[in-house]
Amino acid sequence: ELREAFRLYDKEGNGYISTDVMREILAELDETLSSEDLDAMIDEIDADGSGTVDFEEFMGVMT
């Protein structure tokens, strides 16, 4: 189920989504998050600083 959700956002099928897209997902899930909260969450999610979120990083957030 998580893989299907990931595929919805990984429109190009390249195995990752951008941190911008991940930020939008988080904002949709919790509309009360401030910009600073979102920045901090993205920094934590994208631990390797690649600017992308792969499936493993995505799973870590969603579980």
Rank of each mutant, 00 (worst) to 15 (best):
E1A: 14
S18M: 06
M59W: 06
I17K: 00
E57V: 14
L2Q: 04
E31K: 15
Y9K: 04
L26F: 05
I17S: 00
E1D: 15
F6E: 01
D30M: 12
D39K: 08
D20T: 14
E4K: 09
L38E: 01
E57T: 15
F55K: 01
E1M: 13
S50K: 11
D37R: 11
L2W: 15
F6W: 14
L38Q: 02
G15I: 03
D54A: 10
F6S: 02
I17D: 00
E28N: 14
F58Y: 09
G15T: 02
K11Y: 09
E36H: 09
F55V: 06
R23N: 00
I25E: 00
D48I: 06
D43K: 14
A40Y: 09
L29F: 12
D10E: 03
G60A: 15
F6H: 02
I25L: 11
E31G: 14
D20G: 11
L29A: 08
L8R: 15
M62S: 02
M62H: 04
L29I: 09
L8A: 14
D20H: 13
A40K: 13
E44H: 13
E28I: 11
S35R: 12
V61L: 13
D30N: 13
R7L: 12
G51D: 03
A27Y: 11
L2S: 03
L29N: 07
E44W: 14
F55P: 01
L29Y: 11
G51M: 05
D46E: 03
D43N: 14
E36Q: 11
D46R: 04
G15L: 04
D54Q: 09
L38P: 01
L8N: 11
V61F: 15
S35L: 09
M22P: 00
L29P: 00
E4H: 07
N14E: 04
E57D: 10
E56A: 10
N14P: 01
Y9L: 13
E24A: 15
A5P: 02
E1H: 13
T52Y: 08
L33N: 01
I42A: 01
D39V: 05
R23E: 00
Y9H: 09
N14H: 09
D20W: 12
L8K: 15
F55T: 01
S34L: 06
A27I: 11
L33S: 02
L29E: 03
G51I: 01
R7H: 10
A40P: 00
V53A: 02
M59A: 13
T52W: 07
A47H: 12
R7N: 13
L33Q: 03
A40G: 07
T19E: 01
T19W: 07
E1L: 14
D46M: 03
A5T: 14
F58N: 01
G51W: 03
S35I: 10
E36D: 11
L2Y: 12
F6A: 02
F6C: 10
M41W: 15
E44T: 12
E56R: 10
Y9P: 02
G15E: 03
G15D: 03
M59V: 14
A27T: 09
E31D: 12
D54K: 08
A47V: 12
T32A: 08
Y9W: 13
D30H: 13
K11N: 07
F6K: 02
I25T: 01
E56K: 10
L33H: 04
S18V: 04
G51Y: 03
E44P: 03
S50W: 04
A27R: 14
M22T: 01
M41Q: 04
A47R: 13
T19H: 05
T63P: 05
M59D: 02
I42S: 01
S50V: 06
D48P: 03
S34H: 04
E12W: 08
R23S: 01
F6R: 03
I17A: 00
T19V: 12
E28Q: 14
E1T: 14
I25G: 00
E24Y: 14
E28V: 10
T52R: 11
I45P: 01
F58L: 04
F58D: 00
D20K: 15
E56Y: 13
R7V: 09
V61E: 02
G13R: 05
I42Q: 01
V61K: 06
G13N: 10
M59K: 10
D48Q: 07
V53P: 00
R3K: 11
D43S: 14
V61D: 00
N14F: 10
E44Q: 13
I25N: 00
E12P: 03
D10I: 05
D20E: 14
G13V: 04
E12R: 04
E57F: 08
D10C: 13
M59G: 03
E4A: 10
G49H: 12
E57K: 15
T32C: 09
S34P: 03
D37I: 09
E57A: 15
D48F: 07
G13S: 05
M41L: 13
S34Q: 06
R7T: 10
D10H: 01
A47L: 10
S18K: 06
D30A: 06
E57L: 11
T32H: 10
T19M: 11
I42K: 01
F55H: 02
S35A: 11
D46G: 04
S18H: 09
T32K: 10
I42W: 02
E12V: 06
Y16I: 04
A5L: 15
E4S: 06
I25H: 01
D37V: 09
R7I: 12
A40H: 14
E56G: 09
T52P: 01
R23F: 01
M41P: 00
S35P: 13
G13Q: 07
T63D: 06
L38Y: 01
D20A: 15
E31W: 12
K11Q: 10
E36C: 11
A5K: 15
D10F: 09
L38N: 00
A27G: 08
I25P: 00
G15C: 05
D46N: 08
F58H: 00
R23P: 00
D39W: 06
S50D: 07
R7Y: 09
D30V: 08
I45L: 10
I45C: 04
S34R: 08
D39N: 09
M41G: 01
M41S: 02
E28L: 14
M41Y: 09
F6Y: 03
M62R: 03
S18D: 05
I42V: 07
D43Y: 13
E44C: 13
Y16L: 04
S18R: 08
T32F: 09
E4W: 07
A5S: 07
E56H: 11
G60Y: 15
T19F: 14
I17P: 00
A5N: 05
E12T: 06
E24T: 14
S50T: 11
V61W: 15
D37W: 08
A27F: 10
M59P: 00
A47E: 08
A27C: 07
E12I: 05
D43R: 15
F6D: 02
D10K: 00
L2P: 04
V21I: 13
I45D: 00
F58V: 02
G15M: 03
D48Y: 06
E36L: 09
E28H: 14
Y9E: 03
S34E: 05
E44I: 13
M22K: 00
E44L: 14
D54F: 10
F6N: 02
D46V: 05
G60T: 15
D20I: 12
E4Q: 07
S35Y: 08
E31F: 11
I25C: 04
L8T: 12
T19P: 04
A40C: 11
V21D: 11
F58P: 00
E1I: 13
V61G: 08
F55A: 03
D48M: 07
E24G: 13
D30Q: 07
L29D: 02
L26M: 06
R3E: 14
V21R: 12
E57P: 02
E56I: 11
G49P: 02
I42G: 01
D54M: 10
S18L: 07
T32G: 09
V53H: 01
M22H: 00
G51H: 07
N14D: 06
S50C: 07
D10T: 03
T32R: 10
D48H: 08
E36N: 09
M22R: 00
T32W: 09
T52M: 09
L26S: 00
M62G: 03
L26R: 00
L26K: 00
R23H: 01
D39A: 08
L2D: 04
D54E: 07
V53L: 08
Y16K: 06
M22S: 00
N14R: 13
D46S: 04
E31R: 15
D54T: 15
A47F: 09
E24S: 14
N14I: 10
M59F: 13
S18Q: 05
V21Q: 15
G49W: 04
T32E: 07
E44M: 13
I45W: 06
D54S: 15
L38K: 02
D39F: 05
Y16N: 03
T63I: 13
M62E: 01
K11L: 13
T63E: 09
G51R: 07
E57Y: 08
G51Q: 05
S18C: 06
D46I: 04
S35K: 13
Y16W: 15
I25Q: 00
I17E: 00
N14M: 10
M62K: 04
G60V: 14
D46L: 03
S34A: 06
T52I: 09
